[in-house]
Design a binder for these strands. Structure first.
Lengths: 296, 296
DNA sequence: CGTCATTACGGAATGCGTAATGATA
DNA sequence: TATCATTACGCATTCCGTAATGACG
């Protein structure tokens, strides 16, 4: 089979149509150039250049081979740069898992920052709750998760992206909506409570339970999505705890009431990744997420 | 710069993820394979394979470089075959010039035959009268012409493709249209004659003049295209000489009247080419045009 | 101690450059 | 006779294969 050097020799001669000038361009002398062309033709079994002692011209086959050669050499010069860019994390694929609610807080800022700082990194997104995100990171199908704590620090690296308050979602016409002070426990005790699922949304479930010890019997619905709580509250089925970013959902007929100091900043969102990931694009992305100016 | 051998080595290892099996597949021993990979990584300045004594895995950069390598090697294996096919005339470009009238006789048959016998030869068509076809063939912008004689046999190779009769185009309601015998010279002498241009369509001009010595004063129009003659005859402006294939134009109100023995087969159409053309596709095409079964 | 990647070393082949040849205008 | 591609030859480099080494389970 022919070599890349033979290709480069042929391209030079084909473009110069002169062995002397081609050799000059290749920083070599004519004789080895001549032999490389001969050898290439011999290997191919095709005459590429019609030449006598006065004139050099391409045959039709030579023209076709020249086109192919250009393509090959273009690939050859592109390949190392591509590999280096991937190795440096400036190019590649970053598969990100995110919780539905993060789309209303940090996600768009993260995506904009990645787009700006790592334009050649392709980002693939998948909406998943925290559990499946961890699974995906462990089995390698995800590079980065945007998820709720806690995480096993032995397998996951993590970085806190965002904290927000837990607030109370009540119907707009409810007395609590126009109260000037945070509601007291005994005020809440009288309300129907729309709870998060203890299995599918245990993060919010546990958070709410920690903030307000409550009687499970009063839970009128058990849902897994924040947006569903908002809809049920709007429908007058009860009240519920939601993160403040639920405000971005813009559900009519729902007011979000602050709960006071104990729940200030208790809702956390983390970036998580596999500690042993070798994806360079991930590490570049983490630098950006951790940088002082952040991603907003 | 790296070599194709290094690429092949890398691809084998990347696909097998095992130096021993890869070396086996490449019909070589492990040590040189190991060194080739090391050398490739050194040249690129990038780690392509994560390996310890038990496990071989691709890095992200390695995955990217593997994709590029596949592309390069595909080009490398395609290029020689392409060159050989072009050299054999089974692939390439054939630029054909043709006269407008040939589109009503032989052209479509020729194109079908080329399409069938030389499917990988791309045919480019240009409608030109004989003069410019010759120019194009001489300066190399055309490979094949479909033109009217004569040709200088020193520069042009030629092959007669088609002969047809010269016929008389008359209005359908003209007495000559319903005559049972070819018109005599004195009958024609009384008619207005629509003549071909002596410069742009000298072939038909001379042909008509040879068949029927006539008085130039009686020429009422001078046109360069057969189709124009047909239109003028239909409009009742006179009569004219046209090749029989003008019937395919299907102009209403025009009857084509035979002229008798002296003009049987006098209209000729030739394939012409440069005697020194080196385009292999041309020679394959000529084999087809000259073959007994022809191109119809 | 067996497996598998890597290093060490000797021999063969490939490819360069200089010098000579040949062919053409 | 000048130009330009090609052949001849000597030297350096590269690369293979065999043998030895080293690390890990």
């Amino acid at each position: 089979m022919f070599t890349l050097d033979q290709l480069r020799c042929f391209v030079a001669v084909a473009e110069e149509l002169h062995f002397g000038r081609a050799a000059d361009r290749l920083r070599m002398t004519q004789p080895p150039l001549s032999r490389q062309i001969q050898r290439l033709e011999e290997i191919l079994g095709v005459v590429l250049l019609e030449r006598d002692n006065r004139r050099v011209a391409l045959t039709e086959a030579g023209r076709a081979f020249l086109r192919e050669s250009h393509g090959i050499l273009a690939g050859v010069s592109r390949a190392p740069e591509t590999a280096r860019e991937v190795a440096a994390g400036r190019r590649g694929i970053l598969r990100i898992g995110f919780t539905a609610m993060s789309a209303y807080s940090v996600l768009s800022g993260i995506l904009s920052a990645l787009d700006e700082k790592l334009p050649s990194v392709r980002v693939e997104l998948e909406e998943l709750v925290t559990g499946p995100q961890k699974d995906g990171i462990v089995d390698g199908s995800l590079d980065l998760g945007i998820a709720r704590p806690p995480f096993d620090p032995d397998t996951f690296g993590s970085h806190r992206l965002f904290t927000e308050d837990l607030v109370l979602a009540v119907p707009s016409d409810h007395p609590l909506a126009s109260a000037t002070r945070p509601p007291a426990s005994d005020q809440l005790a009288q309300e129907h409570l729309i709870m998060h699922s203890a299995t599918k949304a245990w993060y919010f479930h546990d958070l709410a339970a920690r903030v307000l010890p409550f009687d499970h019997a009063r839970a009128v619905h058990t849902v897994s999505q924040v947006a569903t709580i908002m809809a049920l509250v709007a429908a007058g089925r009860g009240i519920g705890f939601v993160p403040e970013s639920a405000r971005a959902l813009g559900v009519d007929g729902v007011a979000l009431v602050p709960l006071g100091k104990p729940v200030r900043g208790v809702v956390e969102l983390y970036a998580i990744w596999h500690r042993e990931s070798t994806n360079p694009a991930l590490h570049r992305a983490l630098e950006i997420l951790r940088s002082p100016e952040g991603f907003l």
